[in-house]
Structure formats: structure tokens, C-alpha cells
């Protein structure tokens, strides 16, 4: 299943699926990679408004995109974070790498 995306200027907005695990993180990685390769993307915002579950596979996927975007001096943003996703971002230390954009 193709995840939802939106591109605004040099920012890619990714809407991860409802449950972001090992199974679904791979698809998000592949499609976002494709868009980044094609366009002039510098920043990625993960919009978690529709995501209710995320485990360490989601963390690994975001870290992977962070490394990629760092080479372009861009940033990774998150928004629409629920309590469950917030705990994962906090516990994994991802808040040190990503910025909260509401």
C-alpha cells in the first residue's frame, strides 16, 4: 500500500500508516526515498495525525531519513503526535534529532 505524501516546495510531508512497524516502515522508506531522489527535497515532516502505533522499527526508519536529510542540511519535523507516539519519540531520544512543527 502506498503511503500518503505531499510536497510543499522543498519539504516532503509524509503521513505514515495507522500502525508504523517493521512491516509498514519499509514501504514508507521506499516511497519517500523515491520522491527524495526525484525532487529537490531538503526537509521531511512526519505527520502522525492518523498514526496510533509505532515501535522501534519506526524509530529506525526516521533515523535513516535523518541521516539522509542531514547531508542536505535540512531538518526532520514531526507533528500530530499522540500520547503513544510521544512516548516512543521521547524514550528513543528522537526529540534530540527532530523538531516539533505544529
Amino acid at each position: 500500500m502506498e503511503p500518503d505524501y505531499k510536497v510543499i516546495e522543498d519539504t516532503l510531508i509524509v503521513y505514515p500508516p495507522q500502525e508504523l512497524d517493521h512491516h509498514t516502515a519499509f514501504a514508507v522508506k521506499q516511497y519517500s526515498e523515491e520522491i527524495i531522489r526525484k525532487g529537490m527535497i531538503r526537509n521531511i515532516i512526519f505527520d502522525f495525525s492518523n498514526t496510533t502505533f509505532m515501535d522501534s522499527s519506526g524509530v529506525g526508519m526516521i533515523m535513516g531519513r535523518y541521516r539522509l536529510i542531514q547531508e542536505k542540511s535540512g531538518y526532520i519535523g514531526v507533528r500530530g503526535v499522540s500520547a503513544a507516539i510521544h512516548r516512543i519519540l521521547e524514550l528513543s531520544g528522537l526529540y534530540k534529532l527532530v523538531k516539533v512543527c505544529e
Partner: peptide, 19 residues
Amino acid sequence: YTSKPELERSGMGFAFMEA
């Protein structure tokens, strides 16, 4: 720590189970 960084593993699996 992850033995599979090439698969974009975060190395947080056991830490999450523990937490």
C-alpha cells in the same frame, strides 16, 4: 546497539521491552 544497521534498525527493541 544493532547487528543490522543496514536494515535501519534503531537498536531500541530490548530497551522498549524493558521500558
